Amino acid sequence: MKMVALIGNGGHGKVVKEIVNTRSDMQLAGIFDDRFSSFAVREGLYTGRPDDIHLLRKLVPDVAFAICVGDNGLRKKLAERLELEHGDCTALIHPAAIVSEAAAIGSGTVVMAGAVIQAGANIGTHCIINTGAIAEHDNSIGDYVHLSPRAALAGGVKVREGAHIGIGASVIPQIEIGRWSVIGAGAAVISTIPDGVTAVGVPARVISSIHT
């Protein structure tokens, strides 16, 4: 039985918590969030601030952890700091997700119920593949990417680090989405999207630059 601690206790954290509770091979050990004032046992779980993870390590040395923060940039900062101290996070995949045995899932990535990841897809570290999202064959998904609920990527799509694909957006085959760009909800992407922009509409058009 793998013991798992979660970093983050917001809305996204609630969904990730359900993944752990649904898995028969995992048990939730604790939840760590800035809203907790001190390290303590609350409702049967170890809780505290993210900086208190080392205290849990002393009690449960083999505990794995996952970062449950929806903001891609903040998730990257937390991952870089925490993994330097404690090692790689664990990937969490809901039993109701469909993941090809020929796909690769990076450490710290979470895959929600109803998501589909097809053969040859390569999903990076600390990604969110949200409810009902589709990553078709041979997708290349960079680190810290978020595919929102029902986002659909056709075959051979490349999504670079930190990009966010909005709810219900779709991307035709062989398209590339640039680093830290945002695709609006319901958009239809039919041409390459550069780094650091917001694109919306059908077809998707760049409307602004993002200052990172």
Rank of each mutant, 00 (worst) to 15 (best):
residue 105 I to G: 07
residue 45 L to T: 09
residue 207 I to Q: 02
residue 187 A to M: 10
residue 200 V to L: 08
residue 93 I to L: 00
residue 94 H to R: 07
residue 63 V to Y: 02
residue 212 T to P: 07
residue 60 V to S: 04
residue 158 K to W: 05
residue 184 G to D: 07
residue 6 L to Y: 03
residue 36 F to V: 11
residue 107 S to C: 03
residue 35 R to A: 14
residue 22 T to H: 11
residue 84 L to I: 07
residue 44 G to W: 02
residue 40 A to S: 14
residue 125 T to E: 14
residue 29 A to S: 05
residue 47 T to Q: 13
residue 153 L to C: 01
residue 78 L to K: 08
residue 23 R to W: 03
residue 4 V to C: 00
residue 101 E to I: 08
residue 108 G to I: 01
residue 161 E to D: 12
residue 140 S to I: 14
residue 204 A to L: 14
residue 68 C to Q: 03
residue 207 I to E: 00
residue 131 T to F: 01
residue 110 V to P: 05
residue 124 G to E: 04
residue 26 M to L: 14
residue 77 K to F: 00
residue 95 P to W: 14
residue 91 A to K: 14
residue 193 I to P: 05
residue 77 K to S: 14
residue 77 K to G: 11
residue 25 D to T: 09
residue 170 S to R: 15
residue 191 S to T: 03
residue 53 I to R: 00
residue 95 P to G: 07
residue 15 V to T: 07
residue 7 I to T: 08
residue 136 E to H: 08
residue 86 H to D: 09
residue 165 I to R: 07
residue 107 S to V: 00
residue 50 P to E: 11
residue 117 I to V: 13
residue 102 A to D: 13
residue 36 F to E: 09
residue 13 G to I: 04
residue 95 P to V: 08
residue 193 I to V: 15
residue 1 M to D: 04
residue 21 N to E: 15
residue 96 A to R: 15
residue 105 I to C: 06
residue 168 G to C: 05
residue 84 L to T: 13
residue 111 V to P: 01
residue 83 E to L: 12
residue 171 V to T: 07
residue 210 I to Q: 11
residue 115 A to E: 05
residue 162 G to E: 08
residue 68 C to T: 06
residue 186 G to Y: 12
residue 103 A to W: 11
residue 86 H to Q: 10
residue 168 G to D: 09
residue 212 T to E: 06
residue 167 I to A: 12
residue 148 S to L: 09
residue 71 D to K: 12
residue 96 A to S: 15
residue 180 W to S: 13
residue 63 V to W: 06
residue 28 L to W: 00
residue 85 E to K: 15
residue 76 K to V: 01
residue 164 H to N: 07
residue 172 I to P: 06
residue 94 H to K: 13
residue 38 S to I: 14
residue 142 G to V: 03
residue 184 G to T: 06
residue 68 C to L: 06
residue 38 S to T: 12
residue 131 T to P: 08
residue 69 V to N: 14
residue 168 G to L: 07
residue 180 W to T: 05
residue 173 P to S: 03
residue 36 F to M: 09
residue 76 K to N: 08
residue 194 P to R: 03
residue 158 K to P: 00
residue 161 E to F: 03
residue 158 K to G: 00
residue 147 L to G: 13
residue 189 V to K: 09
residue 79 A to Q: 05
residue 197 V to Q: 00
residue 148 S to Y: 10
residue 87 G to C: 05
residue 56 L to R: 04
residue 180 W to P: 09
residue 209 S to A: 08
residue 33 D to E: 11
residue 72 N to R: 11
residue 151 A to R: 13
residue 118 Q to G: 08
residue 89 C to M: 12
residue 193 I to N: 03
residue 5 A to C: 10
residue 49 R to G: 10
residue 62 D to S: 08
residue 42 R to E: 06
residue 170 S to N: 10
residue 133 A to C: 05
